[in-house]
Structure formats: structure tokens, C-alpha cells
């Protein structure tokens, strides 16, 4: 496999905790501009895979490359984020004591060192960008609301909005529609498809309706490695996938 045109390239990656192999010889390639859905039962290693990509966990072995050339195993979370990988957690994690606007302001692409932050003053361009994102994530009227007061779905959107503000090349989105109403789910699918037009995206999700709505290539993980890969129809017709999900 050539790394050259990939945005994310994992080869033979393994990681274990106390003898438990959370990731086992996992190989996964994401092309530039591609959106991929990752499914798999609990404990399949989806979150650990994201931990490895974002630098939270170091793999025991294997290669992890970003954008064809950057070895991600040599960088920590902040560096990886600065390179252009954004991550949304499974549990929505926003700064609850800040307003929606401040949440976005902190996420906005820009210098990440202390002194610029200390003397930072909002520019017109930044204000416009925040307005844009508020529009995209449908929170325009909640601008001054504390993030703590948002509904669960709104927090998910705010977190996605923070990812957008980072302007990453690759977005890792962990269970974006958990706890959302059907209407919100549909809205989120539309939002992600919008985003995927100019970003590479990996979405981890259990909700098959949502995955179908995304209409992208699907990878099914099981026990830390790839079980099946292809269109949703192909994957859901795979005997082994059925077996894993239905426990037959």
C-alpha cells in the first residue's frame, strides 16, 4: 500500500493494557477527502484506535502515518491537533462554564501559545468565522448561553462546531448522534456530509440508520482488528459481521 495519497495510514498496529489486546494488528487506510464510518460491537477497539491516532495512547507496535508522511506515534495530543486532526469524544466534552461563543473562540485556529492568548483581541475575521460556524451548527441564537445549559444534542453540535473552528484536515467523530432525537440525527447526518465535502472524516457510530444516511464506505472492527470493509450493504451481508453482532 502506498502512503502517498492517504490522510491516515495505520499498518499492523497493536496496543494492549495489562495483557488485554485492545487493538490487534489493525490496518486501516483513509484517502484524502474520504468519509468513513466505523462500526463494531462494544470493546471492538474503536475508541482505542482514536486514542492512538490522536496521540493519547502509544501503540505497542505498528505504523501510524498522517497525511502520508507524519509519524503520529512520535507526537503528543497537542501537536497532533495542531497538525490538523480534530476529535469529538463519545461523551460530549465542551467547556461548560464558558459561553457557546467562548467555546468556539478557544477552538478557533490560530497561535496556541500563552502570550498571544494573554494579549489576544478578537479580530473581525475571527468574529465572522464564529458567526459562520454558529450558523452551521444551528446555535446562532445560543451564542451567549453557557455551554452547561445546552441540551445533550446541542452540546454534540457545539463540539462538532469546535472541531470545525480548528479547521482540521481530518475529523474523528465518536458517536455523534448518541442521545439525539430522530430529527436531530438527520440534521447531524446532513451536517457531517456538509463537512465531508472539504474534510476527511472518520465517524464511529452504532446507529445503523445514521450510517446508512451517511452513505459512505464502512469498516467493521472486531476484537481490535478489521473484520469487514465495504459498502454498508456489503458489510451487513457479511456472515462474520452478522455473527459478531447477533452473537450466533
Amino acid at each position: 500500500m502506498s502512503k502517498s495519497n492517504t490522510i491516515l495510514y495505520l499498518d499492523g498496529v497493536s496496543a494492549s493494557f495489562d495483557g488485554f489486546r485492545a487493538i490487534n494488528n489493525l490496518s486501516l487506510v483513509l484517502d484524502k477527502g474520504e468519509m468513513r464510518a466505523i462500526i463494531g460491537p462494544n470493546g471492538a477497539g474503536k475508541t482505542t484506535m482514536m486514542d492512538i491516532v490522536t496521540g493519547k495512547t502509544r501503540p505497542d507496535e505498528g505504523e501510524v502515518f498522517f497525511d502520508g508522511q507524519v509519524d503520529l506515534t512520535r507526537h503528543d495530543e497537542a501537536e497532533i491537533a495542531m497538525m490538523g486532526i480534530g476529535r469529538k469524544f463519545q461523551k460530549p466534552t465542551v467547556f461548560e462554564n464558558h459561553s457557546v461563543e467562548d467555546n468556539l473562540m478557544l477552538a478557533l485556529k490560530g497561535p496556541r501559545s500563552i502570550f498571544p492568548a494573554l494579549f489576544h483581541r478578537r479580530s473581525a475575521a475571527e468574529a465572522r468565522r464564529i458567526d459562520d460556524i454558529l450558523g452551521i451548527i444551528r446555535l446562532g441564537d445560543k451564542r451567549d448561553e453557557l455551554a452547561a445549559n445546552l441540551s445533550h444534542g446541542q452540546k454534540q453540535w457545539l463540539e462538532i462546531g469546535m472541531l470545525l473552528a480548528q479547521d482540521p484536515k481530518l475529523l474523528l467523530v465518536d458517536e455523534p448522534v448518541a442521545g439525539m432525537t430522530d430529527a436531530e440525527t438527520e440534521e447531524t447526518a446532513r451536517l457531517l456530509k456538509d463537512i465531508a465535502r472539504d474534510h476527511s472524516v472518520i465517524v464511529v457510530e452504532h446507529d445503523m440508520h445514521f450510517v446508512r444516511e451517511l452513505g459512505v464506505k464502512v469498516t467493521c472492527l472486531h476484537e481490535g482488528s478489521v473484520l469487514s470493509e465495504g459498502t454498508l450493504d456489503f458489510v451487513s451481508a457479511d456472515e462474520r459481521v452478522v455473527e459478531v453482532y447477533l452473537g450466533r
Binding site: F17, D18, F20, A22, T47, T48, D51, K56, T57
Partner: peptide
């Protein structure tokens, strides 16, 4: 130390 995702 105990190792593992839960702990971290």
C-alpha cells in the same frame, strides 16, 4: 501502577 484505558 494499574494500566488500562479505564484508569487513564
Amino acid at each position: 501502577a494499574l494500566k488500562g484505558r479505564a484508569v487513564e
